[in-house]
Amino acid sequence: METHDIEPEHWLAKTTPAATIVIFRRDPEGGAAQILMVERNASLKFAGGATVFPGGKVDPADRELAARIAGDGADIEDLAARVAAVRETLEETGLVVGIEGVVDGTIAAEARRMLISVGDLAQVLDAYGWRLAPERLVSFARWWPKHRTERIFDTRFYLADLGTGAVDIEVDATENRHLFWASAQGALDLAAQGLIKIIFPTRRNLERLAQFASFEDTRIHAEATPVDTISPFMEQRDGAAWLMIPDGLGYPVRGEPLESAQRG
């Protein structure tokens, strides 16, 4: 087998740090845990029309807040990504995760409106007497594609649990057009039927998540699995190019033919 990657100088300067969060709730019908999926507007340059997990890029204000709350020896980049995951979730969906304090549907809606207005999670925390609880987010993966033709995001993935999930979600019409709950396998089935579009990293992560029926099982798996940076690479198989990821990181399916892979 022949593999190909690209040298750092081709991608390092173009990399944007980002964060994504896989939000769980219990299935009201008693089936496998459901996760929140976001269908992005087709007009967006990156993953336009694709169904993904909530998230977005790490902003300077996220780093400032991370530096403010960081303890000795803290990983500021990881902490800033957790701040971004909390902020983007509230902004995109109206859900409050990774926060300690009084929250109900009315408060969450007010906080979301304030966040959209001021663009700074720190101000929202102060206004509502909330404390950031980044430890409530479970590290799951880190994806850093390094392809010349792609917009490059160094994305950290986290897990969070809503429990019963008796909450409202509301679409952010500027970037997203539809929010829905589905089990990981259910989302894969929708993609197989052509009802949603999923890009290569989302497909691999859904396949990994579909191995488990509950948030607790997924959390145990995540905490026992190394979070090494995943940079997909090309591999020749029987004369065909495949897009692959490394072994040993918890993924039951490591790749697919390049011609069928949706990369953004």
Rank of each mutant, 00 (worst) to 15 (best):
E2R: 13
T3Q: 10
H4P: 00
E7K: 12
E9W: 13
W11C: 04
T15N: 05
T16Y: 02
T16V: 14
A18E: 04
T20A: 12
I21N: 09
V22I: 11
V22M: 02
I23W: 01
I23Y: 05
F24E: 03
P28S: 00
P28W: 01
A33P: 08
V38E: 10
E39T: 15
S43N: 13
L44I: 11
K45G: 13
A50D: 14
A50P: 08
T51A: 07
V52D: 03
F53H: 11
G55P: 11
G56A: 05
V58G: 07
D59T: 11
P60N: 02
P60V: 09
D62H: 09
E64R: 15
E64F: 08
L65N: 00
L65G: 04
A66D: 05
R68H: 10
A70Q: 01
G73Y: 03
D75Y: 03
I76Y: 00
E77I: 08
A85E: 03
T89M: 06
T89S: 13
E91T: 10
E92T: 12
T93D: 00
T93Q: 06
G98M: 01
V103N: 08
G105I: 02
I107F: 03
A109Q: 13
E110I: 03
R112K: 07
R112N: 07
R112E: 03
S117F: 09
S117A: 15
V118Y: 04
L125G: 05
L125W: 06
L125I: 05
P134A: 03
R136H: 12
V138A: 07
V138D: 06
A141T: 05
W143K: 10
H147Y: 14
T149I: 13
E150M: 15
R151L: 14
F153T: 09
D154P: 09
D154V: 10
T155C: 08
F157Y: 14
L159N: 06
A160M: 02
A160N: 03
D161L: 05
L162I: 04
G163E: 03
T164P: 10
G165M: 01
D168G: 14
D168P: 00
A173V: 14
T174Q: 08
N176T: 06
N176Y: 06
H178Y: 12
L179I: 02
A184F: 00
Q185P: 00
G186F: 00
G186R: 02
G186H: 03
L188C: 06
L190A: 10
I199R: 12
F200K: 08
R203S: 06
R204M: 15
E207Q: 14
A210D: 08
Q211G: 05
F212L: 09
A213H: 10
S214V: 01
D217V: 04
R219N: 09
H221M: 15
A222C: 06
A224F: 00
T225G: 09
P226W: 01
V227S: 11
I230H: 01
I230M: 06
I230W: 07
P232K: 03
F233W: 08
F233T: 04
E235G: 11
R237P: 09
R237Y: 10
A240Q: 15
A241E: 15
W242Q: 04
M244S: 11
I245R: 11
I245E: 12
L249A: 03
L249M: 11
Y251H: 15
P252V: 06
V253P: 05
E256F: 06
S260N: 12
